[in-house]
């Protein structure tokens, strides 16, 4: 049953790994602004739209 020692140790080490990741994220300023990224992630899809529209229009104009 000494496997418990091993398992608990591993789980603690994994937890510490995540904890270090968190500290680094804070240090690089990822927690300074918690609003803008939530808006930014929605933008990429919108970028394509105008091009499609424009090509439609151009084709209409050439008619």
């Amino acid at each position: 049953m000494s496997v418990i020692y091993l398992l608990i140790s591993i789980s603690i080490i994994v937890a510490i790994g995540f904890f270090i990741a968190f500290i680094r994220a804070v240090k690089t300023g990822q927690y300074d602004d918690d609003y803008t990224p939530s808006v930014r992630m929605l933008f990429d899809d919108e970028l394509i739209q105008p091009k499609v529209e424009k090509s439609n229009i151009e084709s209409q104009e050439t008619l």
Binding site: A15, F19, F22, I23, V26, K27, G29, Y31, D32
Partner: peptide, 15 residues
């Protein structure tokens, strides 16, 4: 410099 110590403290406390 931004003071982030509270965020650190909170992270440690939660961990």
């Amino acid at each position: 410099d931004v003071d982030r110590s509270l965020t650190y403290k909170l992270g440690v406390a939660f961990f």
